[in-house]
């Protein structure tokens, strides 16, 4: 045994480990119970919002919400997909995104996560459509609002009409507005754009097969390297990014992952040969 090995062995400690397989099993079982409970909550939320949607479909639209605080955010621990219902949750768990979209039965929609805004929502042709977007803080441009929505309202919708109305269609996937701007249309998740970038469909990330990525959002622009490591995706900013506060090389998603113990790098994981961004539950094939 080398001196270093001896030192490390001492430093690692030889106290009895305070858990065993039964402890781990109980933890697994508790986690599964919580997940089942979260799904139950989400199902209830779908029913509640669905009832509101039906009311609007019958002509109950009273216009956009004037008082954001009066909307009453609806949050859930799961993103929920239904034929015409969109719910994105607040950053409650590692399975959720940073957006919190709440719908009321007066046709009001409020996002309290990240960029604060409200809007009008309605059902049109079996699709959920939002319009009259009004922002309240740094979402001072329609483009920013749209980009935030595109970046964070994962799983359930698709950017439809850039000129005016946002159209969110259940079951489709989002892509980053910046990428859409670059190629003049909305790329499909997983599509190679410019024979270079793979579009990731839940955040304004674009990952290239050579191990580099770009992150572009109103709050953060960043480049760096990505690496698949075990069940996680590791992102290493190259130090040239800049966030809204001027902090360089370290912003947005990565900062959230570091400062929020509920997010961490576990927001990205590998499921078999798929790369999964857990905030969306959407997986795409990412070829390296």
């Amino acid at each position: 045994m080398t001196p270093l090995t001896e030192m490390l062995t001492r430093a690692a400690g030889d106290d009895a480990v305070g858990f065993d397989a039964r402890t781990v099993r109980r933890r697994v079982e508790r986690r599964m119970r919580r997940q089942r409970a979260a799904i139950a909550v989400a199902v209830v939320a779908v029913l509640v919002v669905g009832a509101g949607a039906l009311a609007v479909a019958r002509g109950g639209d009273e216009g956009p919400v004037a008082d954001p605080a009066g909307v009453g955010p609806v949050t859930s621990e799961e993103l929920v997909v239904a034929p015409w219902v969109l719910i994105a949750s607040s950053g409650v768990t590692s399975e959720s995104s940073s957006v919190s979209l709440a719908f009321n039965d007066r046709g009001g929609l409020l996002n309290t996560g990240g960029c604060l805004y409200n809007a009008r929502w309605e059902l049109a042709g079996g699709r959920l459509r939002t319009s009259d977007v009004r922002s309240y803080d740094d979402c001072d441009s329609r483009g920013s609002v749209l980009d935030v929505v595109l970046a964070t309202s994962s799983t359930v919708g698709r950017f439809g009409d850039r000129a005016g109305t946002l159209e969110l269609r259940a079951g489709d996937a989002f892509v980053a507005l910046e990428r859409a701007d670059r190629i003049g249309r909305t790329p499909r998740p997983g599509e190679l754009v410019g024979e270079e970038w793979i579009i990731f469909d839940t955040a304004p990330f674009a990952f290239a097969p050579d191990g580099t990525y770009v992150l572009g959002s109103p709050q953060c622009r960043q480049r760096g390297e990505w690496e698949l490591d075990g069940d996680q995706m590791l992102l290493a900013p190259d130090g040239e990014g800049e966030d809204e506060t001027g902090q360089r090389g370290y912003c947005g998603f990565l900062r959230m992952a570091e400062e929020d113990p509920l997010h961490g790098t576990s927001t990205v994981r590998i499921d078999g040969d798929r790369l999964v961004l857990a905030t969306s539950q959407i997986a795409i094939q990412l070829q390296r």
Binding site: G230, D231, L234, A257, E259, G264, T265
Partner: peptide, 20 residues
């Protein structure tokens, strides 16, 4: 090996959070 790798990644995440 997979479990150790996950553990090392968790340690990395923990260290970054601790730094934050």
């Amino acid at each position: 090996a997979w479990t150790f790798r996950v553990a090392f990644n968790l340690a990395g995440s923990w260290r970054r959070r601790a730094a934050a």
